[in-house]
Design a protein around this nucleic acid. Sequence first.
DNA 1: CTCATAAACTTGACTACTCAAGGAACTCTC
DNA 2: GAGAGTTCCTTGAGTAGTCAAGTTTATGAG
Lengths: 146, 146
Amino acid sequence: MSDALDTALRLVRAQAALVRRFDARLGGLHGVSLADFTLLLRLGQAPGGRMRRVDLAEALGLTASGVTRALVPLERIGLVTREPDVRDARVAYASLTGTGRARLKEMLATAEETAEDLFAAPAWGEEEVPLLASLLTRLGGTGPRT
Amino acid sequence: MSDALDTALRLVRAQAALVRRFDARLGGLHGVSLADFTLLLRLGQAPGGRMRRVDLAEALGLTASGVTRALVPLERIGLVTREPDVRDARVAYASLTGTGRARLKEMLATAEETAEDLFAAPAWGEEEVPLLASLLTRLGGTGPRT
DNA sequence: CTCATAAACTTGACTACTCAAGGAACTCTC
DNA sequence: GAGAGTTCCTTGAGTAGTCAAGTTTATGAG
């Protein structure tokens, strides 16, 4: 088997393992999945803590319907609310609540810890993590779905 | 956000994009998903083209029930058959059929192509693909579920 | 031999997506 | 100002996995 195919398959396996670690940690401490956390994080980074669902979908690499479904439980537990747009009645913003923002801060600490554990010395050198990040970025997956 | 967390999130996005590319290519040409292909590939690498379902689960990073469900459509389209063990009536081997082996060979060519495209020059240097592979291997995900 | 425990597998109920279709609201052209 | 087309979002149906529970078979201890 070629290096290229081998690398691609390893990437899939590594991601599955990584997601499971994050899900276990975030789920255990905060009751959310990595996908939930990522969504909240993007919202937290957006001005005003709110985004149109369409933009959220693009930022997360999901479809619009995936976002609709992902938001349901987050709205139910009060981390996110739905806000209409004054100008355009088609758009419904997803907006972090106060609770959402507070909980996100705690989740972020957990996620940082988990990530640091994952890339801990001595297995990982100081410069290797950014190196991995730059290689992964070249693989795409950022920006709009094609 | 730390480099570590940023890198972890990039890995998730890169994998999603990669899986979509493989699914599109393999699905279009051979009617299978990347997960199907990976399963068939592992079977193909095993002696006699057959494995116990439990070992297949471990090799793929799935649960036993995931394997049961993944095999159903592959048996239905005749790429894999179920074979009992003579010694132990609990075990049911998953075994590549002749057709399965032939189709796998074609799929492998497609997968290799897709992987080469993904890591094509000039964006990717000769030495960078094995480098990425080695970084990913350090992240684990190979071997038994913990 | 018999009983307890363990291993291999399947099944039901669930989650998290996808795609395709559709409703409602906006915008553009005449 | 009326359609025609486009955008935003939701919904129904389907796929791919999870976990927990159950069945069947094997094994080891007395």
